[in-house]
Design a protein around this nucleic acid. Structure first.
Length: 732
DNA sequence: CCTCATTGAGTTTTT
DNA sequence: CTCAATGAGG
């Protein structure tokens, strides 16, 4: 008889069948981490040690959570509905919805994404009269989130200097504003939930009694706050099964502390640390490269991956002259691979930062190769969708100032800044929301009438949608708000109308998945105090939109080349992987070099990138690259030097395409004629004019054709290098 | 008060 | 380059 345990190796089997005790599983890349986790869940349930509802499994991404559920239900004939499997944010949201009163939140509390959060911060700072030159709102946002991830409220923050004291004032005022509006940001979901459990003993012991087993994926990425939350939920008697890999910790920048692994061992008296070191994914050379690279990091728990596979192909390294050359090379190779029968969807093109996808996309688009870009603008982040969501948020909760401000004058209805500033001032004075302020004392005059019209528009929407099923609510709102009509008149608005209609579909899909089809938007969810399940109806949908900003398009089955950042590639694997832009300053990124531990994190990132490949790995870099509209000259990444040369085959002999590049001077005879070099119609010594810099004289030139650059001495602006292809230079 | 245009500034990773 | 914020004109 076949068992779910079949095919596990010794360490995997041991991990899966551990008794009820806390354990740490150090799982290297490709060592079957997800399999162990899901089999553990299935085994616990199958052997009757735990009911499906008495365990909780936490991941970082929605994708991972879905994957876990899919795999579990493939192993066991049980319904996964109602199981507590999800992201930290998703699970906390669920608890807060169920106990919103105890948590001090309105039933309809809304979730802010980072952009929403930033705009609240800007508003608050304006209200406090904080100089946003000296205190960039972005930095205030970082300050607030970093402290929340540490579990600290404003009154707990130790601000030692004037600067952070001021930021901390913003933090306090921001939290006050969010409370008034009934909105929470991402970190707040966790912190609020943690405080709820900490404060409310009844709830805490209920959940502690319920969740005998806690399973945590990607444990190295947990923040201080997430760890505290887990520890609280585990209490004295429950077992945490933590799976992680310190070498793949790549989220320190947002508060992840791989040190939690050591703390976990201490706090829970972990007796069992199991290392999974056999890699089932990659050929030997790829693994050797990864191992050699990561050995340059000092702060490691120590682990060495091995495989029973042969070495396989050598890694391939390509040095391109330009970023365009790099993508042309990649394109060629992809074509060849595809012709050899490798599926495009089994090939990944990885880069350090999203900006790099542009050139690659351009090349792929021109060559008509199917590709899919992960990341970037997500469905629920598109402007038209956010507008529609703002109307929906107002239907749910009129105190949501962010939503109010977003659509009070969209589509335009003649309400300007002045009116809104007055309204905001009155709201501040009365410590009320904009909506309440406007209702209490409707503004006078022509624009006042527009405000009143807006208020009744939203009121009418609320009345008209009460009791309707979710998709019809959305349909009504996008129509009645005038959004559809507005985008229909815009000439580039076709896609936006499509997206709005797609939002209705998203609502239908959500309702179906949640089994709400028959339920209505305003009908109360079953009033179970402790077992209250997923949020329902409109609020549930809005939470879904915020928490799952849109793997909406991701799983479409078409065979397409996969483009993504290294970060978003974590957890995935491909037959062939291209890593592009392996240059100092880009990868490792220059910003990381100043932060302590920054370089080691970049190296772990590189480690993640390498270990995504099963069979073939390309390492690409370019001598010059366009960045911020300027050409940058880069040297090869140090990470390339950290990979043993015998594993790598250099597929080109770095020959500069033009004589102007590279360190090797062309060894030809002196220029035949003494006439000045002519580049793109300009010559050295010529007087030119630039729209921004004014007039100047060309003093140097290099490169040819599309790469041509000239150095100009401007009368007013001094020396500048300009790319002829982009700079609007004219003869003077 | 709105729209358009220009200018200026900023660019890592994401639940 | 590309987005966001600012300023002049309708």
């Amino acid at each position: 008889m076949s068992s779910i345990l079949d095919g596990l190796n010794e360490q995997q089997l041991e991990a899966v069948t551990l008794p009820h005790q806390s354990a740490l599983i150090l799982a290297g890349a490709g060592s079957g981490k997800t399999r162990v986790l899901t089999t553990r869940i299935a085994w616990l349930i199958q052997t009757g040690q735990v009911s499906p509802l008495a365990l909780i499994a936490v991941t970082f991404t929605n994708k991972a959570a879905r994957e876990m559920l899919t795999r579990v239900s493939a192993m066991l004939p049980i319904s996964t509905r109602g199981m507590w499997v999800g992201t930290f944010h998703g699970l906390c949201n669920r608890m807060l919805r169920a106990h919103h009163r105890d948590a001090g939140l309105p039933q309809t509390f809304q979730i802010l994404d980072s952009a929403d959060q930033l705009s609240v911060i800007k508003r608050v700072m304006k209200g406090l009269g904080v100089d946003d030159e000296k205190y960039p709102p972005k930095q205030a946002q970082w300050f607030i989130n970093a402290n929340k991830e540490e579990g600290l409220r404003a009154h707990q923050v130790e601000a030692t200097d004037d600067f952070s004291r001021r930021l901390n004032e913003v933090y306090a005022a921001y939290d006050g504003q969010c409370t008034r509006e009934g909105v929470v940001d991402f970190a707040e979901l966790l912190l609020r939930c943690y405080e709820l459990l900490q404060r409310n003993e009844l709830l805490r012991s209920h959940y502690q009694a319920r969740f005998r087993h806690l399973l945590v994926d990607e444990f190295q990425d947990t923040s201080r706050l997430q760890y505290l939350w887990l520890r609280l939920l585990a209490g004295a008697d429950n077992a945490i099964f933590a799976v992680g890999d310190d070498d793949q910790s790549i989220y320190a920048f947002r508060g992840a502390r791989s040190g939690n692994m050591l703390e976990f061992e201490r706090d829970f008296g972990v007796r069992k640390v199991i290392k999974l070191e056999q890699n089932y994914r990659s050929h030997g050379n790829i693994l050797d490269a990864a191992n050699a690279l990561i050995r340059h990091n000092r702060l490691r728990l120590g682990k060495n991956l091995w495989t029973s596979e042969s070495g396989g192909e050598p890694l391939r390294q390509y040095e391109a002259t330009t970023d365009v050359d790099e993508s042309a090379y990649i394109l060629d190779e992809v074509r060849t691979l595809h012709a050899e029968g490798v599926r495009l969807s089994d090939v990944a093109l990885l880069y350090r930062s999203n900006a790099q996808s542009r050139v690659l996309e351009h090349a792929l688009f021109t060559a008509a190769i199917a590709y899919r870009v992960y990341g970037g603008l997500r469905f629920f982040e598109r402007q038209e969708v956010k507008h529609a969501l703002a109307y929906l948020r107002l239907v749910s909760n009129t105190d949501d100032d962010g939503a109010f401000l977003r659509v009070v004058n969209f589509p335009a209805r003649g309400i300007g800044n002045r009116t809104l500033e007055q309204l905001q001032a009155r709201a501040r004075d009365g410590a009320a929301s904009l909506w309440r302020a406007a209702c209490a004392q409707p503004p006078q005059g022509k624009t006042g009438a527009s405000i009143v019209a807006f208020l009744s528009l939203v009121e009418d929407m609320r009345a008209a949608t009460r009791g309707l099923p979710l998709p019809e609510v959305i349909e009504h709102v996008i129509e009645a708000s005038g959004l559809i009509a507005h985008y229909k008149t815009e000439k580039e608005g076709g896609d936006r109308v499509d997206n709005l209609e797609e939002l209705v579909n998203a609502g239908t899909a959500f309702a179906a998945e949640e089994g709400l089809a028959a339920r209505t938007a305003d009908a109360p969810a079953e009033n179970e105090v402790f077992t209250a399940d997923r949020p329902s109806g409109l609020d549930g949908f809005l939470a879904h939109a915020a928490l799952e900003a849109g793997e909406h398009q991701a799983s479409a089955g078409a065979d397409a080349l996969q483009l993504m950042t290294v970060h978003s590639a974590k957890g995935l694997e491909f037959h062939t992987v291209f890593i592009s832009g392996l240059e100092e300053g880009l990868f490792p990124h220059e910003n990381s070099l100043n932060e302590d531990g920054g370089l080691e994190e970049e190296r772990r990132l590189m480690y993640v990138a390498i270990t995504r490949a099963r069979r073939r790995l390309y390492l690409c870099h370019a001598q010059t690259r366009m960045l911020h509209g300027q050409i940058r000259y880069n040297v090869a990444s140090r990470f390339l030097d950290e990979i043993p040369a015998e594993l790598v085959k250099r597929v080109n002999t770095a020959s500069p395409a033009t004589g102007f590049f590279g360190s090797r001077a062309p060894s030809f005879a002196p220029a035949p004629a003494p006439q000045p070099a002519i580049v793109g119609g300009f010559r050295i010594g010529q007087s030119v004019r630039h729209p921004r810099f004014g007039s100047g004289v060309i003093i140097k030139a290099e490169g040819r054709g599309a790469d041509a650059r000239v150095q100009v001495n401007f009368r007013d602006s001094g020396l500048k290098w300009l790319a002829l292809e982009y700079a609007k230079l004219s003869a003077a």
